[in-house]
Design a protein around this nucleic acid. Structure first.
Length: 373
DNA sequence: GTCCGGTGTA
DNA sequence: TACACGGGAC
């Protein structure tokens, strides 16, 4: 059986039973060093994979296109014709609506088959003290042990050949949404043992079997359907590999912006944008790092947050920001009852003690009341 | 906005 | 009981 070294998502403690290779892998991942590791990956990426849409200066101004699934299937001929899922040439997308306008509902849904991100970064002044805040979070994270500490993003099938590894990453990303890390890990393990991290094998398996294998990941019925559709598309259009571009990934059912960026980062080592999940979205807003243009109000979707964040956050932080804030969100800056009392940057946080804090420290609660008044 | 969904946690 | 789970489709 495939004793494939599948390391994804799991908390370290849950994965301890997996072999020394896991330990060896995990060690460099914990917090303080995750940053340098990720930076290395990015540097390596720049050197090794000079794709047509690299994030260097030359391509900075390059127009990026987004194909929205569903309409994309019907309208995005360019993506479908191109085996690598490359974006169409600039001139073809020059007149398309800006993705930012789309994110704020300024573009009719009927016109969003493709979207253009005209400007990516450094168009806005960074918020005050952001570096100090980030450093503070790093320090807190190095003493906590968050579930995310295993990876930051999933890393599946690290011992597999590249193409198989990419497919494994894609599948585990799909399964991971709205699902606890260790649950995802178990499901991927079962798939792996059956050789079902492969497009060819998946299309030969019925949905019910897939569903029972991935159970109890969130929305397992839908995901089993998505898996079959994705496997079909990957076989037909990408030779069993996964799409190479954001566009192509977004064409796949079950692949939204969050997972598409994650897969681009992890499977292709290609940072196209910030991977914004619920934690990054929530914390960025609490910190006052993002806002709707003009209004200064909180962003109302992860996509808005991504756009807002990409306008000022330096690119070398685009990858590490995710594992950093996710772990912080799992341990300190939790969705409900955030532990502002133990947060070392609460004096820099405009939202500190503004929500009911965790019943761990009375002092904080009283602080909360004081601040509210 | 609502739905998908079993599971852990407060 | 309620709510979150490193979302996405409709």
């Amino acid at each position: 059986m495939g004793s494939i070294n599948l390391t994804l998502f799991g908390t370290p403690s849950l994965l301890v039973r997996s072999s020394a290779s896991w330990k060896g892998f995990r060690m460099p991942i914990t917090l303080s060093s995750s940053r340098s590791l990720l930076s290395k990956a990015q540097t390596l990426d720049s050197e090794l994979s000079p794709g047509p849409e690299r994030s260097d200066d030359a391509s900075e101004s390059m127009v990026r296109t987004y194909a929205r699934r569903k309409k994309a299937k019907r309208l995005v001929g360019d993506v479908e014709k191109n085996p690598n899922g490359e974006a169409p040439p600039d001139q073809k997308v020059a007149n398309l609506p800006d993705i930012e306008e789309f994110a704020y509902g300024k573009v009719e849904a009927s016109k969003t088959s493709k979207l253009v991100l005209k400007k990516t970064s450094n168009t806005v002044e960074p918020p005050a003290h952001w570096e100090e805040v980030l450093e503070g979070i790093r320090k807190m994270r190095s003493s906590e042990d968050a579930p995310v500490d295993s990876m930051g993003c999933e890393k599946a099938g690290s011992l597999l050949p590249p193409k198989e590894r990419r497919f494994a990453v894609l599948v585990s990303s799909l399964l991971s949404s709205q699902t606890k890390d260790h649950v995802t890990h178990g499901a991927v393990q079962r798939l792996s043992e059956k050789g079902l991290l492969d497009a060819d094998a998946i299309i030969k398996t019925d949905e019910a079997s897939l569903a029972s294998l991935i159970y109890p990941v969130g929305f397992y019925t839908r995901k089993s359907q998505y898996m079959k559709k994705i496997a079909n598309i990957c076989l037909e259009k990408y030779g069993g590999d996964i799409p190479r571009s954001l566009d192509g990934l977004l064409t796949l059912p079950g692949m939204g912006p969050k997972m598409a960026h994650l897969v681009m980062n992890v499977a292709w080592d290609d940072v196209q944008g910030i991977c914004v999940d619920t934690h990054v979205h929530r914390i960025s807003n609490r910190l006052g790092w993002v806002s709707k243009p003009g209004t200064g109000k909180k962003t109302s979707s992860p996509e808005q947050t991504r756009i807002s964040l990409e306008k000022w956050l330096p690119k070398d932080e685009w990858v590490p920001i995710n594992p950093l804030l996710v772990g912080f969100g799992q341990t300190v800056c939790t969705p409900v009852r955030p532990r502002c009392g133990v947060c070392s940057i609460n004096e820099l946080c405009p939202s500190a003690f503004k929500e009911a804090s965790s019943p761990g420290s009375r002092a904080k609660k009283s602080s909360a009341r004081v601040k509210k008044q």
